[in-house]
Simulated assay, not measured.
Amino acid sequence: MTTSTHRSADERRAQLVDAAVAVMTDDGVRAVTTRAVTARAGLPHGTFAYCFGSKGELFRAVLDRELRQSMAVTFDDDSVPVEDPSERIAAGLLAYLDRVRAAPDEALALFELTALARRDPDLRDLARWEQDAYAQAVTGNLRQWSDRHGRSWSAPVDQVARLLVALVDGAMSAWLSDRDDSAAAATLRLAATMVGALAVQDADAKGVRS
């Protein structure tokens, strides 16, 4: 019984996250109210309080899911079995670009949510959490890849991760403004070349892993 109840709560949370993203995408972040979200999910309004303690908690769940999906796309080792760091990074970034291109309105809504969180005192912790969560996730993926392929980073890997996150954010923001696929792809390949150059063979490494 306990397991069934737990699964039911997780399913309802997932429904509400889906609904929140749909409302944001169609009508903007300001339109995300507890009633709008539960109505879009087809659930009783009281379900919201059962699943989330606040709207901020819902937004965090939205961003957390986006983070996990983004990492799965960008660092999918099975899709590009190459050892060259620049090629590997470029393949991941271009895959992420394809994901954004496939759902631009959703990507805009998520950018809007992040911008709102930076301005709203009640959500400022959410903006900081998102930035740190992306940096930590990318750091882990970069470290895992370099360890697997016998490489080290010539700069602290957490700094490399933050550089990569900043480059990708800028490229995606530019694409959402001009929808120039070629320019975005060229920018991401250049970013991959820059970041990939920081990964060196362990035999020649003079940098640090941490």
Rank of each mutant, 00 (worst) to 15 (best):
G42R: 08
L43C: 03
P44D: 01
P44N: 01
H45T: 14
G46E: 09
G46S: 13
F48N: 01
A49I: 02
A49R: 12
Y50N: 07
C51V: 08
F52L: 04
F52S: 03
F52A: 03
F52K: 06
G53A: 02
G53P: 07
S54T: 14
K55V: 06
G56W: 04
E57S: 05
E57A: 14
L58T: 02
F59N: 13
R60A: 13
R60E: 15
V62A: 07
V62F: 03
L63I: 07
L63V: 03
L63D: 06
L63W: 01
D64M: 10
R65E: 04
R65K: 00
E66L: 12
R68I: 00
R68S: 03
R68C: 00
R68K: 07
Q69V: 14
Q69Y: 00
S70W: 11
M71R: 10
M71G: 05
M71N: 00
M71T: 12
A72R: 12
V73D: 01
T74N: 08
T74H: 01
D76I: 10
D77Q: 14
D77E: 15
D77A: 14
D78P: 00
D78L: 13
D78A: 15
S79W: 05
V80H: 10
P81Y: 07
V82R: 13
V82H: 11
V82F: 02
E83W: 06
D84P: 01
P85K: 06
P85G: 07
P85D: 03
P85M: 07
S86D: 13
S86Y: 07
S86F: 05
S86T: 09
S86E: 14
S86Q: 13
E87V: 08
R88P: 04
I89H: 01
I89L: 15
A91V: 01
L94K: 05
L94C: 07
L94M: 12
L94P: 13
L97P: 06
L97D: 05
L97F: 03
R99M: 07
R99H: 06
R99F: 05
V100L: 13
R101D: 01
A102K: 04
A103D: 11
A103Y: 04
P104T: 10
P104R: 04
D105Y: 04
E106V: 06
E106F: 02
A107V: 13
A107Q: 12
A107M: 10
L108I: 05
A109Q: 10
A109D: 12
L110K: 15
L110C: 00
L110I: 15
E112P: 08
E112K: 01
A115Y: 09
A115V: 14
A115N: 09
L116K: 10
L116C: 03
L116F: 00
A117G: 11
A117N: 09
A117R: 13
R118D: 08
R118H: 14
